[in-house]
Simulated assay, not measured.
Amino acid sequence: MLARFPLRTALLSGLFFATFLIAGCAHQTPAKGINDAENRLWTGRISLQIQSEPPQAFFAAFELKGQAEQGELTLTSPIGSVLGVMRWSPTEAVLESGRETRRFESVDALLEQTTGAAIPVTALFDWLAGKNTSLNGWAADLAQQAAGKISARRTNPAPQVDLRLVLDQ
């Protein structure tokens, strides 16, 4: 009977060690590149409110890749369906929405046409990188940028526009 006790202890110890080894291997580390200026990839939620007559509001999840000169923005509804994919380069900007593809002369024209407000793409990428750039009447509040929250407001020209981004953590 004494011979079984060390064997049982060894088996239980081995099982205990294997359990921790497997649990350690199963631990998922966060995906690299999410909400990272170095890898040029951000995900989160966007809110855009335009104080027009009548007022307009837009809410979506987003994935933004690239930079101001060339990139891609995918907008997804709260229920998970893709609302549209915007792609831009120095030569053109394209909106794919459902089966429809529309072309624009610039990303600025694309964003203004689709959202109803001229959102400054260059400033947006700066805000995501933590640089407080003011452009075309827009002013950003980056006080909570480290926590993944960015807000910006355009007061001039009218109508007033409020933009809020909440990045995935």
Results as ranks from 00 to 15, higher is better:
F5S: 13
L7M: 12
A10R: 08
G14L: 13
F16H: 05
A18S: 14
T19Q: 09
L21P: 00
L21D: 09
G24Y: 07
C25E: 14
A26I: 13
T29G: 13
T29H: 14
K32N: 13
G33F: 10
I34A: 09
D36V: 03
N39C: 06
N39P: 02
N39G: 11
R40H: 13
R45E: 12
I46D: 06
Q51E: 14
F59T: 13
A61V: 08
K65Y: 03
K65G: 05
Q67P: 00
E69D: 15
Q70D: 09
E72F: 07
L73D: 06
L75C: 04
S77L: 09
V82P: 02
V82M: 09
L83C: 01
V85N: 09
W88Y: 07
S89H: 10
S89G: 14
P90H: 10
T91Y: 12
V94A: 07
L95M: 15
R99Q: 12
R102K: 15
S106Q: 06
L111G: 01
T115M: 14
A117F: 06
I119Y: 05
W127G: 03
G130R: 02
N132V: 07
T133W: 00
W138R: 05
A140E: 00
D141Y: 07
L142D: 01
R154Q: 11
T155S: 13
A158N: 12
P159Q: 08
P159D: 06
D162W: 02
D162I: 07
L163Y: 03
V166E: 06
L167W: 03
D168T: 07
Q169M: 08
